[in-house]
Nucleic acid binder design. Sequence first.
DNA 1: TATTGTTATACTCTATAACTATA
DNA 2: TATAGTTATAGAGTATAACAATA
Lengths: 160, 160
Amino acid sequence: MSDDDRIAMRPFTASLPMALLQARESAMRLFRPMLAEHDLTEQQWRVLRALTSEPFPVDAGELAERTFLLAPSLSRILANLEGRSLLERRPHPDDQRRSLISLSDEGRELVASVAPKSEELYHRIEHGFGRERLERLLDELHELAALDHQVDPAATEEAS
Amino acid sequence: MSDDDRIAMRPFTASLPMALLQARESAMRLFRPMLAEHDLTEQQWRVLRALTSEPFPVDAGELAERTFLLAPSLSRILANLEGRSLLERRPHPDDQRRSLISLSDEGRELVASVAPKSEELYHRIEHGFGRERLERLLDELHELAALDHQVDPAATEEAS
DNA sequence: TATTGTTATACTCTATAACTATA
DNA sequence: TATAGTTATAGAGTATAACAATA
């Protein structure tokens, strides 16, 4: 292969999406066994977890945004979790198309039972990486994610 | 709900896995249309991308590690990409169970044709976030991922 | 016997579109 | 007419186990 065949592109290891995936993968490897013990997928856990955050109860649209799940995926997950009595839905007072979703007592108990172990794993990461350093990293990640809105995705369609 | 019902857990927004997912999601939203134009899934692109990195050619096991794909997933992806003539397999000289995988000319052309747009999107992120700041973030992510090996996953099994 | 890679199987998520009920 | 949410459908990845070929 001649030098001209080399592709003008940053190394695979310097790719931001890969670095994010890799970091997430290594973090999730820690958390996954914990979720498996309770027969929860990552996405199901994300939904339960999101329901512990203010404000609640929330409608499905809000929940989809918080969890980065598409509406159809979320619909099925909600049906599953409701079938396991982990969450409740009640009609929205102002709009009969929506319902307001919240954890059931059982769901809250489940999350509460997982919380200590989750925190323990978290402390382990903090211990290895540094607490303040981790906080700074989280801040940077949030700012990076927020950037998204400034960059116009439509502009990428024809940019070639 | 009484105060006692509150769950002792960091806020959803302060969760490291969520922050990583969110950041990745916002980055991928930029890159996805580009991949869709070439009928590539994220995972297929990851494989092609990994094959541009030294050293190559590689066997399937090495490729699975680089791309964070499980062997069965990778098998199907390799079959797909080989069917589209984007990569080639030749027998491993020392071990007939393995094969050595590399991009075909066509595959290299495809990656090369995508590269400029990919770099452009990358520059857009650098512009919005800061080049050196992004480099620091990448370093931190790599160190976080490397931590994984220090933390004993087996210890999580019984930690309750 | 152990290892590499593929195939089998069941489940879940993704993604788009069609549909229902309500606004 | 537009919106919120569900259902339909096709495609793909995840995960575990079983398997074939080779070491």
